[in-house]
């Protein structure tokens, strides 16, 4: 399953809740304000880094750029993708759950 998260983990528990329900082998895609969850060195980075042992993480590049987050600030191992990559993920996983 593909999970999408569009909330900053510093503002809401959406990403945390998503991670608690993401099974091994599933994927989490950070979109919109969710991209703040991909940043290194935040209070919530350890939660994401720990989840990455079982779940693949992706982040939308155009959303990072719009917010002035350079790729060098993104946690190592999170794949930066564009909308075309987003479509590929939706196709690859059998269903998508949007964490709103």
């Amino acid at each position: 399953m593909l999970h999408t998260v569009n909330k900053s983990p510093l503002d809401r528990n959406t990403l945390e809740s998503c991670i608690q329900h993401a099974l091994k082998g599933s994927a989490v895609l950070l979109i919109e304000d969710g991209v703040y969850g991909a940043m290194q060195g935040t209070q919530k980075s350890p939660m994401v880094e720990s989840a990455m042992k079982a779940v693949s993480f992706y982040v939308i590049g155009p959303d990072l750029k719009a917010r002035g987050i350079d790729a060098s600030r993104v946690i190592d191992g999170i794949d930066i993708i564009d909308y075309s990559g987003f479509v590929d993920l939706v196709a690859k996983y059998d269903k998508t759950q949007s964490w709103l």
Binding site: N6, E32, D33, Y83, S84, V87, D88
Partner: peptide, 16 residues
């Protein structure tokens, strides 16, 4: 931003 993301996604899906 939801309407923008939905639009960008739709465009990309059609292109593919």
């Amino acid at each position: 931003q939801a309407a923008d993301t939905a639009y960008n996604f739709t465009q990309a899906a059609l292109e593919k």
